[in-house]
């Protein structure tokens, strides 16, 4: 981890109609850092993540990538989206393509890699998540855990600078969660910058450099993993973590 700021979020606001989902969010992500965003459902953490890669357009405030605002009209958005990968809660694998094609399509259409090169990269990444035997399978033929590992391989195949994870294990059966978390852990060890929205508290604690706790559209508390999980300062954070700990931290 260096101190080079990759993503800076400044005074970010997002409203849906009358509903203010995000209120004055400020955040910095450094190169090689793993940031976890935790909080109750509806606290705005997924919206924050979706604003960062512009699946949602912010209402106010600014987001900077390498100190450059991504919201100006001359900003190269497709290039940015190619450099900021995303892994979705509901996988969103392309249903019309098989596993290998899912991992190649972004490389060939966006990065303009030649198919042989794209295939090589895709197979490498599929191998890392133990999905290379399934290259010919269509998404519908895979289990949830398998789909999510392909989703990770697809995102990593683009060689992103930052990888966003939007509750990657929430839609999985418990016995499949570990495989996905293993894949993510391996990625974190490569020094990739990651922003992670999750309910897997134990995992977040183990893997994160920095943890943000969100509540009702604001960042209620942030700090190192150690600080947040073992010694939370705010009452809201304590209550939230207690509820999770009672359920048994995985």
């Amino acid at each position: 981890m260096t101190n080079e700021k990759i993503i800076t979020v400044e005074h970010l606001e997002k409203t849906f109609g009358d509903h203010r989902v995000l209120k004055d969010i400020n955040l910095e992500v450094n190169h090689g850092e793993v940031l976890s965003i935790i909080g109750a459902s509806g606290s705005g953490k997924s919206t924050l993540l979706r604003c960062i890669n512009l699946l949602e357009h912010p209402t106010n405030g600014d987001i900077k990538f390498h100190q450059q605002s991504i919201l100006t009209s001359d900003f190269d958005l497709t290039d940015y989206q190619a450099k900021v990968g995303m892994v979705f809660q509901s996988f969103n694998l392309f249903n019309n393509l098989n596993v290998l094609e899912n991992c190649m399509i972004g490389q060939t259409t966006v990065l303009k890699r030649d198919p042989a090169q794209a295939k090589k990269v895709a197979l490498e990444q599929l191998d890392k998540v133990a999905m290379s035997p399934y290259v010919n399978a269509k998404p519908a033929q895979l289990s949830g855990g398998q789909k999510q590992r392909v989703g990770i391989a697809r995102a990593v195949s683009m060689n992103p600078e930052v990888l966003l994870f939007d509750e990657p294990t929430s839609a999985l059966d418990p016995e499949m969660v570990d495989d996905v978390l293993d894949s993510m852990r391996a990625l974190a060890h490569t020094g990739l910058t990651m922003i992670l929205v999750t309910h897997e508290m134990a995992f977040a604690r183990d893997i994160s450099d920095h943890v943000v706790f969100m509540d009702q559209g604001v960042i209620a508390e942030e700090g190192s993993a150690e600080a947040i999980f073992t010694n939370p300062q705010k009452e809201r954070t304590q209550t939230f973590l207690k509820r999770y700990l009672q359920g048994g931290m995985r």
Binding site: Q81, A82, M86, N92, I105
Partner: peptide, 15 residues
């Protein structure tokens, strides 16, 4: 077609 398909494609940087 599921909205997630659009999102995943945009997230990859596809036009």
């Amino acid at each position: 077609v599921d909205a997630g398909q659009f999102e995943a494609a945009h997230a990859l940087g596809m036009t």
